[in-house]
Design a protein around this nucleic acid. Structure first.
Lengths: 196, 196
DNA sequence: CCCCCCATACCTGCCGGTATGTTTGGCCAT
DNA sequence: ATGGCCAAACATACCGGCAGGTATGGGGGG
């Protein structure tokens, strides 16, 4: 069946995401990805022309995965825009469980590493990160009303989340990351309270 | 003279820092570092046993550089601890000029990439980042008094700064990073105001 | 004369990519 | 339905270049 095609390809994409955010892009070998997906290098190069091509495809796959993750999250049921923002932060905090490598951000990891060596991959990664900010900005304008600098606040949220993930990597645990996001939440309460 | 030794070694360390934060650790070749320092690979392996050894030495050099940078900064003259904290943020913002690769954080770049493949290097990088938090925590306890959670706030500051640098990499400019740090400053005003 | 610093030349394992063989599965004519 | 056929999916074997690391040489100061 044709789902086998999608299956193998998707297995490779998921494997790429998981391996790369553990070992980094350059240090990840094509054989690592193939082995993690349970296929061989021949199959890998059947689906992707180059390693970078796979990583770029993984970027859009990552965007899709995180998109549905947040779109289907329970907090979307909340009617108040302000409450939805705060619940989003709570949801992000709740994701910080288990081994650090299970909740780090694929595109954040890649972007740092390849921004100068692989421009196309870097552009895709940057777009994926900034797309989150765009989605947040829409929510924030709804909560704060027009005229507010929802844009810069959205950027700030994305930045802090990414920074918290780096702290988690540094500490080898989620303690500091949770604390940082809790501070972010307090700041957002402050901002949203002003607008209310 | 013996200063020539220090000179070559330090040139290699500075070169390593600059090249690695542009190309990443794995993608950086030993020849790149040597060429950037104006010496040959032979000289490189005279000073460092391995590439990782050089990167680790670069980490402590980075800590020393940033340590003196902030120790000698003009804002240290301020007598009020709270004002010194805010001035620190302003100082960090003022550093965000010129090409992005000139103000990104060496240890932050490295940590993301090698946390699983080179544990010793990752530990050094993590220590360098968390050391900043320790320094900040001391300042914050001075400003907020004992009993405050200066620790988590220090972590939050470090995290947000690192996140802002990633945003700068994503955007290819400092606009969003500046905005994010401005939000951080506002939050700190809020916290410090509560304590005053 | 000798030791430290650095350069030149080389070696070797590794990894991205290729070339080619093999299986699977869908489809059509009979 | 069925057998044959072709294309897509996947595996195996291999190549070639690259980069980390080494062995050796030279030069200058003490």
């Amino acid at each position: 069946m044709s789902s086998e095609l999608q299956d193998s390809r998707e297995r490779l994409l998921v494997a790429a995401i998981n391996v790369i955010r553990v070992k980094g892009y350059s240090a990840t070998r094509v054989d690592d990805i193939a082995a993690s997906a349970g296929v061989t290098k021949g199959s890998f190069f059947h689906h992707f022309a180059t390693k970078e091509d796979c990583a770029r495809a993984a970027t859009v796959h990552w965007s899709a995965l995180s998109g549905t993750l947040f779109a289907d999250a329970p907090y979307q049921q909340l009617t108040s825009p302000a409450a939805r923002i705060l619940a989003y932060i709570d949801f992000r905090i709740s994701l910080l469980t288990g081994p650090v490598t299970t909740y780090t951000c694929y595109v954040g990891t890649v972007l740092h590493e390849v921004h100068d060596t692989h421009p196309a991959l870097a552009a895709d990664s940057a777009a994926s990160i900034l797309q989150d900010a765009v989605r947040l900005e829409a929510e924030l304008t709804e909560a704060l009303g027009p005229g507010s600098d929802a844009h810069s606040l959205a950027i700030h949220i994305v930045a802090t989340i990414q920074g918290a993930l780096l702290i988690a990597t540094a500490e080898g645990g989620s303690h500091g990351a949770r604390a940082s996001l809790a501070h972010l939440r307090r700041y957002l309460e402050h901002c949203l309270g002003d607008a209310a």
